[in-house]
Design a protein around this nucleic acid. Structure first.
Length: 486
RNA sequence: GGUGCGGUAGCCAAGUGGUAAGGCCGGAGUCUGCAAAACUCCCAUUCGUCGGUUCGAUUCCGACCCGCACCUCCA
């Protein structure tokens, strides 16, 4: 079955296919604003987009997918930081984007083919704003800021399906606060900034423009970078968190469509792909609320990032997902189970325990598209229905790791690797975790093993209790033992 | 208030007009001195509530209750 996905624009499940004659699928995803650590809720979006990309590469071939994800490195909050921390914008954004990339690697995210920076695309943004002013979709305010005139784009609100006549009359926002329209020098509350005029508190963070010094507004960067990277043609898919539907993506549509109004039939994006949020105790995880966890926090809790990746995939991408410690533990156990299935199939396929590791490594290095599905074809079928990852996981576990024949084991081994590592990006098996054992624990364990060898079970049991009191346990084998934390 | 999404076992979570996938936890057993690991088996007469349509609804329709999100900082 070809891949089908929910499209926010039409609210329907649609086939995702490349529109262009070259057969290349072009996707753009809104990336992080690098003013602080990215949290695991941010990564839900990037993990989901990564699975989509991998699925597209399976379907179309890796060379037929182009993926762009921007870095927002100019923004009000970053500029405030340059002043409070007395560091340059470049210094701050380099620091946080470096950490972001490290987290991406830890989560096994494929690097995008393009990773444009907003600061590096200021001329492209200025050029786009000029086009909008030329076509009378934007106006310069007295202070030198430029705003998009929403009233010139009748289709505005189409993505979010908001009623703008009602919205304009609204005098309070969701929190019951007064509408902030008057704070800005714009003609209508719905108008949004394309260019923000320089203010004294901006420090050295301003750029020249035909309207005076200042900096670009947020929404224009994506429109400009998409234009630049993909040559102004319609792109196949645009992704982001559900919170970006309005106003960010709504505004992008308005900007890009108005800039192209001289081209009849122009469409900006064919398919809009939005994921629901990660929640913490029924509340959205967000930087402003301060209720966030980072990838580093998860590692400090003793979990490998692949466990987090699994957790982020346990709910369908359009459903909210509540993050809990319990969820991490369940994910770790489930991954362990998959790991066992993988080893069982590899052992059967190779018939030789010594060869399994080497075989697994070799298969993992090969292109996922080249691998066979075996009995995991149904898992893929389920995935193609709107990226139903929970359903896919169910299908994966339904396949008994006992293959009927060696040939089937070989095929299944490829299939299991293809779906888990190749599509879901769950890089199994789990790396063996190295644990530091205190000397006193090592000594107690030695004594216990000696007592056990001497068949002094009373002493051995007493020592096991000693170990337990210190939080450790001995896992005995025939020829020795391992130590583990209880 | 407007708009949208959702309420499925102890927890997480798919799904379908024909009688409930899967994961975690838990229980029983096999095997080991013990413990663990591993393996086998068990674990929702029921899908928020109340009505309706239907031979039949968890699945469709209506009402209601509850939760979450968005309504110009947000992945």
């Amino acid at each position: 079955m070809p891949l089908r996905l929910h499209n926010t624009l039409t609210r329907a499940i649609e086939l995702v296919t490349p529109a262009n004659a070259d057969g290349v699928f072009r996707m753009y995803c809104c990336g992080p604003t690098v003013y602080g650590p990215s949290h695991i809720g941010n990564f839900r979006a990037f993990v989901v987009q990564d699975v989509l990309r991998r699925a597209l590469e399976i379907e179309l071939g890796a060379e037929k997918v182009l993926h762009a994800r921007n870095i927002t490195d100019v923004d009000d909050r970053i500029i405030v930081q340059t002043q409070t921390e007395k560091r340059s914008l470049a210094e701050i954004t380099a620091h946080w984007s470096g950490l972001f990339h490290a987290d991406c690697r830890a989560l096994n995210l494929l690097p995008p083919h393009y990773e444009p920076s907003a600061v590096e695309h200021i001329p492209a943004q200025v050029a786009l704003i000029e086009r909008l002013i030329f076509h009378r979709h934007a106006y310069r305010a007295d202070d030198g800021s430029v705003y998009f005139d929403v009233s010139t784009y009748p289709a505005y609100g189409g993505l979010a399906r908001l009623d703008f006549t009602a919205l304009r009359k609204q005098t309070t926002n969701s929190a019951g606060e007064a509408n902030l329209a008057d704070k800005y020098d714009r003609e209508a509350a719905a108008d949004f900034a394309l260019w923000k005029a320089r203010k004294p508190e901006d420090g050295s963070n301003y750029w020249p423009s035909p309207w005076g010094e200042g900096r670009p507004g947020w929404h224009i960067e994506c429109s400009a970078m998409i234009e630049k990277i993909f040559g102004g043609q319609t792109i196949d898919l645009h992704g982001g968190g559900i919170d970006l539907i309005f106003p960010h993506h709504e505004n992008e549509i308005a900007q890009s469509c108005c800039a192209h109004e001289s081209e009849p039939g122009y469409s900006f994006v064919r398919h809009w792909f939005h994921n629901a949020h990660l929640l913490l105790e029924d509340t959205k995880m967000s930087r402003s609320l301060g209720n966030l966890y980072t990838v580093a926090d998860i590692q400090k809790m003793g979990f490998d990032p692949v466990v987090l990746r699994y957790v982020l995939l346990t709910a369908h991408y359009r459903s909210p997902l509540v993050f809990t410690q319990n969820g991490l533990e369940a994910a770790q156990s489930a991954l362990h189970k998959l790991d066992k299935h993988l080893l069982a199939l590899a052992l059967r396929a190779t018939g030789d325990a010594a060869k399994t590791k080497e075989t697994l490594l070799r298969l993992k290095k090969s292109s996922p598209k080249a691998l066979r599905w075996g009995r995991f074809a149904t898992a893929w079928e389920v995935l193609t229905d709107d990226l139903n990852v929970p359903g896919t996981l169910g299908e994966i576990f339904k396949v008994e790791p006992k293959a009927a024949t060696v040939e089937q084991a070989k095929e299944d081994l490829e299939g299991l690797l293809k779906i888990t590592v190749g599509v879901l990006g769950l890089d199994l098996p789990l790396p063996e975790t190295k644990i530091l054992v205190p000397d006193e624990i090592v000594e107690l364990a030695k004594q216990r093993w000696a007592a056990k060898q001497a068949k002094d079970f009373a002493k051995a049991d007493a020592l096991r209790k000693e170990l337990s009191a210190r939080g450790w346990k001995s896992l005995d084998r025939k020829d020795g033992y391992d130590l583990a934390k209880e």
